[in-house]
Design a protein around this nucleic acid. Sequence first.
DNA 1: TCCATTATATACTAGGTAGTATGTTTTTTT
DNA 2: AAAAAAACATACTACCTAGTATATAATGGA
Lengths: 200, 200
Amino acid sequence: MDQKLKSELTRQLILNESFKLFYENGFKTTSVDKIMKATNLTKGAFYHHFENKKALALAVIGLKLQKRVYEAMVAPLYGSGDALEILKTIFSVRLKSFTVYEKQHGCPTNNFINEIGDHEVAYQNALKRIIEEWKSALVYVLDRGKTEGSVRKDICSKSVAVYLISAFEGVRGLRKLYDNDLILDEYVSGLSLYIKQISA
Amino acid sequence: MDQKLKSELTRQLILNESFKLFYENGFKTTSVDKIMKATNLTKGAFYHHFENKKALALAVIGLKLQKRVYEAMVAPLYGSGDALEILKTIFSVRLKSFTVYEKQHGCPTNNFINEIGDHEVAYQNALKRIIEEWKSALVYVLDRGKTEGSVRKDICSKSVAVYLISAFEGVRGLRKLYDNDLILDEYVSGLSLYIKQISA
DNA sequence: TCCATTATATACTAGGTAGTATGTTTTTTT
DNA sequence: AAAAAAACATACTACCTAGTATATAATGGA
């Protein structure tokens, strides 16, 4: 029972270092060699745990990215509290509380989407799952707001969800170009206007 | 006078093929060899016209990308007509009229931003210029709308501009994951809600 | 027409790439 | 404890990479 544990630990180590390097340098330009150098293991270990680099990418997307987005952007939407307040918190407070490192490198999921979202169906589906889960949670909280009377009933929840996600991912990309938070402040101000519009 | 012309033609050929290959396969994974194969020229020609791959990237960004964004997204904003109608056209009609190829591969500029926006200051500045030019045009048309009475005077033009750009670039990335236009339709619907909010 | 310059081609280097083949060590099972 | 299996290491292949060195061809000016 010790071997299984240590093996799983190694797998997680590879996944963690991969995520980090993919995030900092991109997926396609991060080699297996670089990853294994970061883990202090060798290629033998890598190809024992993963069939190839594509399998690693799918694991990083399905495990690391999906989990991160779920914890940061999805789970809070299922919490209690005023629907619109939750939205404001998720999309603005969270954004400003990112570290410089996170602001500089953007959204890990969005980076993957833009880098390999048009390459393989397997990648598309894995990434799509993350977005759809997020979108569903947004629709849920918007619908709840409707029944509770805080959100206008004549708006399309799905459309608002897509627009919110789009703007968030968009600005996380744009922020890479700057060395200050001005664009984030403007985004937040633009967002608050949008939230006012959907409020009843 | 013939040599200068032919030389410039070759340079443009390299730029065009580079743009296309960068767009389809990404910047970092497109090699100089592949580019020159596409031009039916050789490496000698490439390094005669460009100092290195970085110089090529800066030329593609500063010439090809900047021009494309200007023609498609900036120039129309300086045209005549109702400010809000122009915004609707730019951000929704244009989006739906993209070819399948363009929907699949997203926005060339946004692809660059996400791929190398966090790599080098030179890249950042070249890309920033495109976004700032776009943002200025949006601010212009929003301010015009304010004086003409079609746009609410209490909104921050810069913030709205940033939010509009963010959402547009965001959804162009997300669309890569799908094989239909549903997400674009939802974006358009979400956008029209936003435009309603800023109208007087 | 000769010469200089520019434009392009060819051949090469040094290093990086995914993946494989084959080891050796460690752990589990019998 | 022996055998089997799992975990990891080492060495290798075939190919791609940016960039350089040096050649040849085309053009423009005198």
